[in-house]
Nucleic acid binder design. Structure first.
Lengths: 121, 121
DNA sequence: CCGCATCCCTATTGATACTG
DNA sequence: CAGTATCAATAGGGATGCGG
């Protein structure tokens, strides 16, 4: 890596720009956090809801449906009672892990910077 | 890298979760695309507006102001006529480049996957 | 002209209650 | 359990205007 990577950031941001394509998938509040949960494996709806403190059931369902339509997540329904559904990243969806990791590293830098400024007496 | 990186993706997504911290900064439509433009160097307001086809002046100004408040962008005003302002990433802001690159790589995978499915005759 | 600020409208998100 | 229905709040977006 690092050879052709410069070209990602050159020129205007056209419709075919890879960053724009990725942004269209990852946009929307909670989307990246939902993906973060799924990176560590298959999850049930209720597990996601509990892990993502503060998310509303509507948004969770909406985002999962969108990710499903875009081919990044698969949903499996087990016809039993009580009902049980599982969500899992597709191979294409697992490609988002790199993005999540990069975000995590940036988040750590943010935290370090924030603590440094708030620690001034 | 890769040693402690696993810990980024473990456990529930608490308020201190690095991915959540990053998401709070990068959230909002256009934000990542604005950062993408600034990664390649100092840019004027009008340059950003032209490069980001379709963005409204309000959103562009709002996003830049937010990034400024969060310490990721600095704004320089040149008191001349016609007016001229320049926007530049701070050292902390430049840490977002890794995220943008990861998104770009993911965007290429999306494109490849999309072409593969649409190419079925 | 450039770089926004303002007004106003639509779309997305969110809280809550309820159902198969 | 796994969502949907409903309604209120907030963010996004277009048009216009204005000071420098």
């Amino acid at each position: 890596m690092g050879l052709a990577s410069e070209t990602y950031l050159q020129g205007a941001c056209e419709a075919e720009c890879p960053v724009r394509r990725a942004a269209e998938v990852l946009e929307g509040k909670w989307t990246t956090l939902i993906v973060r949960e799924l990176v560590s494996g298959v999850k049930r709806y209720s597990e996601l809801q509990r892990a993502l403190a503060g998310i509303s059931p509507k948004i969770l369902a909406d985002r999962l449906a969108l990710l499903q339509v875009k081919g990044l997540v698969v949903k499996t329904i087990y016809p039993c009672v009580p009902p049980k559904t599982e969500y899992e990243l597709t191979p294409l969806g697992r490609e988002m892990e790199k993005v999540i990791r990069a975000m995590a590293e940036f988040g750590l830098m943010l935290q370090a910077a924030g603590e440094a400024t708030s620690a001034r007496p």
